[in-house]
Design a protein around this nucleic acid. Structure first.
Lengths: 167, 167
DNA sequence: ATAAACTTTCAATAATTATTGAAAGTTTAG
DNA sequence: CTAAACTTTCAATAATTATTGAAAGTTTAT
């Protein structure tokens, strides 16, 4: 396999995985492209490489910046803006963990708490609803606290600990 | 908040979270409904409760069974089929962890391995592609082995260990 | 001040994904 | 055997989501 083919394979695979961590295809592909690029890329270059429109590129770059995994780079003497992504996979994972917790898990925890706190009217179905949503709340809460611990640890610390624990 | 409102809130919230673990809305809602039901439900009852068509219900129940989190229940004397979901959240988490590993992470690991194994032609960009995809492979591999460990542990073991580790 | 270089916005459109519903298929009872 | 009860399939359609492209907005150089 040659460079070009490998690169395309990587971008398309990692891109399609994007949906797994809750971002769309273009967003994931832009991040992938930056992730293996040896220098910051301009909007023009990104559009060209991925064959996507200017508007699409602009919007998705913005979202990536909102996620905290892409940053603008100002290159002296250049008028246009350049972009880079976090290159360290551990850091990348930390950012993503933190964002997913904030955007997805936290709001769900809130609802589960509300639902599991309804007044127990003594009927079997109410008891079941309370019991099950409580159990789900506790599970989600555990998962979330794990995720946040991951997000706040030093690089490698987590990986080392987990591997030791589970080896 | 009354039972009915709480139930609807739970189904719609947990349902919309479905996309997080890679299943569609109807599928997630059916699972939610079964999760808080005090008895197995027939297709008719599910259609009625969620206001979805027979075809939709049938297809999504099938998918839930493929995921291993819903099972057919045969009730003596009844002609129609009834369905239940795994009620234990730990078991549910184990099933989901296992399936996601198999369906999503494993295939990606394979591609990452292929891409990171291309011939090093000595150019900087090739070196970068190899380095970055290797790092991603290792991260994904760690995540996957963690997920699989979770999927194979005794109930509660994982939660307890993790809480101890991260308390 | 203004023109060139560049980015953002957003209504229109395209692409994708989910849902319906009715026909075909299957199972069971009599 | 066959009619009734039930489930599955799948082409058509609807709903949702992503993408485009051109106009509007912004910044910088002169």
């Amino acid at each position: 396999m040659e460079y070009k083919e490998a690169k395309e394979k990587f971008i398309s695979t990692w891109g399609s995985l994007g949906t797994l961590w809750g971002i769309n295809k273009a967003m994931a592909q832009i991040q992938s492209l930056l992730f293996i690029s040896i220098k910051p890329l301009s909007m023009e270059e990104i559009m060209e490489e991925l064959k996507i429109s200017r508007g699409n590129t602009s919007m998705n770059l913005r979202q990536l910046m909102d996620w905290g995994i892409v940053t603008k780079e100002l290159i002296p003497g250049e008028r246009k803006e350049f972009f880079t992504t976090e290159k360290d996979v551990q850091e990348l994972a930390r950012h993503i963990a933190k964002e997913r917790s904030r955007r997805e898990i936290k709001p769900v925890l809130k609802v589960l708490k509300e639902v599991s706190s309804i007044n127990d009217d003594g009927t079997e179905k109410t008891k079941e609803l309370i019991k099950q949503t409580k159990a789900l709340h506790d599970l989600a809460d555990t998962a979330d606290s794990l995720l946040n611990k991951v997000a706040n640890q030093e690089q490698n610390w987590v990986t080392k600990s987990l591997l030791k624990l589970f080896k």
